[in-house]
Amino acid sequence: MYYADDDAVTVVSPTLGARYQSEGVRASAQLAVDMVTAASVDLVSAASPRGYEETRKEATLGAGLEAARGVWFDASHAVSVEPDSVTRTFGISHAHDVLDRRVTLSLDYGLGLTRFGRAGEPSLDRSRTQHGVTGGASMVLRPTLVLDTVFGVEFVSGAQENPYRFVRLYRGEAMRHATAVPEAVPGERRRQTATLRLRARPFASTFGQAAYRLYTDTWGLTGHTALVRLARGFFTDRLVLTAELRGHHQGAASFHRARYLVAVESDGPLEVPRYRTADKELGGLHTLRAGAHAEISLPVRAAEAFRLGFGFDLLHIRYRDFEPLDARTARIYTVDLTYEP
């Protein structure tokens, strides 16, 4: 994957993955590397004046066992390493087909442990813990129509501020820049999501999906996300074309301000707000992503199991109350090769 936006951020992300499924067992492995070069305007103004270059490496292993017909138990482990943080995640999940395989119930639990600081500054050692539970049901309404419902809750505790980020404080009606202080956000956060998704095959070789997600959290942030996807197979599915549109709208966290004003005591100490952030992702924003993907099965008998894919997405984000940047447009290119015997 190659990502480039008009705010001086580029990401190159090669990924290698394998999935194996046989009678009663399945396994998967994935290696991913993100090479990021960033000198965006908000980063330069609030965190690192020179921008940065860094590499993130992530390895994921998963395995599953079918304990009885239609009853799966899966476990996974992932490690993600960046110059200033290490995240380990552990997941277990259970899926159970019921009502003559017309309904699949699933329950997932995930634990995430993150230690982070500032690169080259070992004395700054912070940690964060995440517990997440997701429950879902997939229901076959008709042989060509499936409804998924997914409910999730995640508890995050520990340090959640960005250790590089500083927040500007302003004083008086003249909005005179007074000083900049480290970002500070609440140490606890609970996120809730509810998702509805319809998957259908309305006509032969034509598939459609529509999904809606409601997101709320204890920081006062509410989000609405909708996704529509259409796929059509040609030449007995040797060529599959997919088009996708995704929209997202979110309000701001309760403590987010476009500008933090402090009391006007001419020579006295500043009354610094307890929680303050310069994180534009905690402000109000709209996102629109439109994309297309083509997947071709190689027309060689010995290589029929290989599929070559090309994708392009355009991502536009509009920030409602973030002064250094009001919009960002990104192009995302993907090339993928899949082997599925």
């Binding site: 699933s106 429950g135 879902g136 999501t193 998704r197 989000g223």
Partner: peptide, 11 residues
């Protein structure tokens, strides 16, 4: 985006 998660699972 500040709102993440929930689009996976089930299926």
């Amino acid at each position: 985006e500040g709102a993440t998660g929930g689009m996976g699972a089930a299926g």
